[in-house]
Amino acid sequence: MDRFLLCLDANPDHAGRKYEAIRQKLVKIFDWRGVRFPEECADETINRVVRKLEYGQEIRDIPTYCQGVARLVVLEALKKAENRQVSLDELKFVPVAPVFSEDESAQRNCFVRCLSDLPIENRQLILRYYEDERRVKITNRQTMADQLGIPLNALRSRVQRIRDKLEQCITHCLSRSSS
């Protein structure tokens, strides 16, 4: 891991931040690729890169190398999922419980709970940011950024992380309610 960090940056603090950034990007890449457990895949990707470094392999371009490893991990993960799907498809006579409306209700309850758990400024920020853009012009977001005294891309980044936390909270809430 030390070698991996050293490849990212000579400064340990900067290296730590770059590690977190690469991990988050890998998580999203696996997410976008439709992998069921993106975080596990991201960690697996980094572990493989670290091992390569420990084995003495020289890696000049960490992002490109990580992407190459991630592509393989994606393929492996999708293959596992396909295998599971095939095995499930073989169970032709297993009834599917009509729980959609119940899921929607649980979703709503968890959404309301997690939204109310957000700090009020974050709650107001995310609701205002995602107002229907057909009615509210895009300049609304620029106005928000101006009011907060931050650039527009910084506002976007902040809102996306609030939304990500909201999703994580709801996922956790649903898993608890289902168990």
Partner: peptide, 19 residues
């Protein structure tokens, strides 16, 4: 992806609430 379905469900509630 089930993760994406979950995201869509969250988005549905979020945009409704925002609107």
């Amino acid at each position: 992806s089930p993760v994406h379905r979950q995201r869509v469900a969250v988005a549905k509630n979020l945009v409704e609430e925002a609107d």
